[in-house]
């Protein structure tokens, strides 16, 4: 359904990443050399950086029950989450706990908002730098893909681009509406 759109979005995100991170030279060279040649998503990863223009999140005031509870695995944004919920660990569903650092690259999911019925692209950012939180472990796999389709794989420790890769917990940030293209 939203797959084409997600793929286009991923490609755009990958290109943004390749041209803006500190590994700029290497990634840009590799991307230029190989993106076109092999038609492979070389860096199929998302990025929820501040420089990315983003849409406002949906209204969550009318959500009821578990689908509206960020400390519950059934919270609507968690359809492809794998890890400890930041909201149970001193953070919120969209902010990391104190003492951690939010990952710069992420995996994404496409979750349906139970009230407005729209599909939203969700960025699952890992919170990094401390030990495992150990609370509210959740694993949902809607749209999850194997590790070689990395941008949609929740099995990977996505603490990359952070000062350490020590995993603590995970947030779920709405990036925008997944519209048909």
């Amino acid at each position: 359904m939203a797959e084409r759109n997600v793929d286009s979005w991923l490609e755009a995100a990958a290109r943004r990443l390749a041209s803006t991170t500190s590994r700029r030279g290497f990634l840009a060279r590799m991307g230029t050399a190989l993106f076109g040649a092999a038609s492979l998503p070389l860096l199929p990863v998302a990025r929820a950086g501040a420089e990315s223009p983003r849409e406002a999140g949906p209204d969550e005031s009318k959500l009821q029950g578990a689908a509206g509870d960020p400390t519950n695995c059934e919270y609507w944004r968690y359809c492809a989450i794998d890890g400890f919920l930041s909201a149970c660990c001193g953070g919120t569903h969209s902010s990391c706990p104190p003492g951690t650092e939010m990952s710069r690259v992420t995996w994404i999911g496409t979750c349906r908002h139970p009230v407005d019925g729209k599909d939203y692209i969700i960025s699952y950012n890992d919170c990094c730098g401390t030990s495992f939180c150990g609370r509210c472990i959740c694993n949902r796999n809607e749209g999850d893909r194997p590790v070689y389709l990395a941008g949609r794989s929740n099995d990977i420790n996505w603490c990359m681009g952070t000062s350490t890769a020590a995993y603590s917990s995970t947030v779920a940030i709405v990036l925008g509406v997944a519209t048909e293209s």
Partner: peptide
């Protein structure tokens, strides 16, 4: 390896030394 660019680190276990990093663009595991 993934950082998130993908590659393989090759170690010679007989000589106990790191030999090479080989890029595996678009490919994993």
């Amino acid at each position: 390896n993934m950082n998130p660019a993908t590659s393989l680190s090759i170690v010679d276990v007989a000589e106990r030394r790191f030999v090479a990093e080989i890029d595996t663009p678009g490919c994993s595991l």
